[in-house]
Every structure is written in structure tokens, then in C-alpha cells.
């Protein structure tokens, strides 16, 4: 494997990892509680960027279907035909697809030819990865398989077909962003309460106070105990 190719294909990921680790570092080095929460945010946001980059397809576009999209009869039919023709191109002769798709809806959609072959479609590398939806009108598409074939092939040659980026990571991350802000809100509320109760939001001071409350002896801050060591000494000291 070519080393340049290897780097060009992965440098994005490495940068995301660096970002994640910066966030994690802020969290674990545990200074100020508010900064800890900012660090958590940074960590999570970097993970989100990583996730979204999984679904990126070079030359793809945002997963919002373009063309004169109308939810009316002619479009629905036209789309079925158009897709059927397209499948013919990609999968070398599943011409039954257009008939199958024509009148089906919802859950009953028999996807025998479409879905089963898509994962295997790697052989036609440029075409297999994504849906090629033609921005033509329904009338053009309905004019017959041959015409559609021609136009699809034509369009593919000109690079005019639309490739959509994978929408699934987007959906997952939309959920995760909201989870992130929810955590931020609760964390900050806790920090506010801690400030009121202890008069500080610095982790080491809090730890020292809690340690004193528990054992009646001060925790020497100069020892610089981490979480793990801190607890073990607690066990031993008791």
C-alpha cells in the first residue's frame, strides 16, 4: 500500500483522535469543574466529527433528495421506473426491479433485487456505493428502459448523477449532540451546587475537604494523588 495514499486516506482520523485526546486530557487532569465540563464537550464533539467522517463519501452531497421532488402520483411512479433502470445498470440485469417496485409501498416492499445486491455491488466501484437518482422528470424516465439506460449511462459518464452521503451517522450524531447538551446542563447544575456548598470548584480542594470530612486528617495536597492512588490511601489510612 502506497504510503502517501495511506496518509491521505487517514490524516483526518488522526486529527480527530488528537482532538479527542485533548478533550480527554482536560477532563482527566481535573482542574476546575466548569473546565472539566468544557473538556467533556470537546471530547464528545470530536467523537461526533469522527462519526460523521465515517459516513462521508467523496463526491457525495448532503442527503436531501434533489430534483423536482414532489410527493404526487407521477413522481412516485417515475421514481420507481427510474430506479429500476438504474438498478439495471449497476447490477447487470435485474430488469424485474422496475416492475416490482412500481406498485409497492411501505413495509411490503419486496426488495429482492435491490438490497440484496447492493453490498455485492463493489464491482462497479463508482456506481455501487450510492443511489444514483436522476434529476430528470418522470416523463423522461417512464419512456422506457432503454432510454433510461442510455440516459443513466450518459449521465454517469458526465458525472451528473447525484451521490448521497450516508445519512445514518448524521442521525446518530444528532441524537448524541442532544445527549451531550443534556449532560452539560446537569453537570453545570451540579457545579453550581458544589460551589454553593464548598465555596470552590477546584477538584483538589474539594478532594481535600471531602478527605478531611471522612477521616478527620488533612490530605496533603503536595503528594498529588490521582483518583486511583487517592482511594487506595483512603483504604489504607482507615
Amino acid at each position: 500500500m502506497d504510503i502517501i495514499e495511506f496518509i491521505v486516506g487517514r490524516y483526518n482520523y488522526w486529527i480527530f483522535i488528537t482532538l479527542m485526546m485533548m478533550g480527554l486530557y482536560i477532563v482527566i487532569s481535573r482542574g476546575n469543574l466548569v473546565k472539566t465540563i468544557v473538556g467533556l464537550n470537546l471530547f464528545q464533539t470530536s467523537v461526533f466529527i469522527f462519526y460523521i467522517s465515517i459516513g462521508k463519501i467523496v463526491g457525495g452531497t448532503a442527503p436531501i433528495i434533489v430534483g423536482n421532488y414532489k410527493a404526487d402520483d407521477s413522481y412516485g411512479d417515475g421514481h420507481g421506473d427510474g430506479y429500476g433502470a438504474d438498478a439495471t445498470v449497476t447490477d447487470h440485469g435485474n430488469s424485474g426491479a422496475s416492475e416490482n417496485l412500481h406498485d409497492t409501498d411501505g413495509l411490503d416492499l419486496p426488495s429482492n433485487s435491490l438490497s440484496a445486491d447492493v453490498p455485492a455491488g463493489g464491482e462497479v466501484s463508482a456506481a455501487s456505493g450510492s443511489l444514483h437518482q436522476m434529476p430528470e422528470t418522470a416523463a423522461d424516465m417512464a419512456s422506457g428502459t432503454d432510454a433510461a439506460y442510455a440516459s443513466v449511462a450518459d449521465a454517469a459518464a458526465q458525472g451528473a448523477e447525484v451521490i448521497y452521503t450516508n445519512p445514518l451517522p448524521h442521525v446518530l450524531i444528532l441524537t448524541a449532540i442532544v445527549v451531550g447538551v443534556a449532560t452539560t446542563a446537569v453537570g453545570l447544575a451540579l457545579a453550581v451546587r458544589i460551589r454553593e456548598a464548598y465555596g470552590t470548584i477546584e477538584e483538589d480542594e474539594l478532594e481535600a475537604e471531602d478527605h478531611f470530612a471522612e477521616f478527620g486528617v488533612p490530605l496533603h495536597p503536595e503528594q498529588g494523588q490521582g483518583r486511583g492512588q487517592g482511594s487506595q490511601t483512603q483504604g489504607g489510612a482507615a
Binding site: 491521505v8 486516506g9 483526518n12 467522517s53 463519501i57
Partner: peptide
Amino acid sequence: MPAFGDPN
């Protein structure tokens, strides 16, 4: 990992 932006 697959290369960044790999449609396959």
C-alpha cells in the same frame, strides 16, 4: 480503516 470518503 477504510480510506476517508470511500463509497465502498
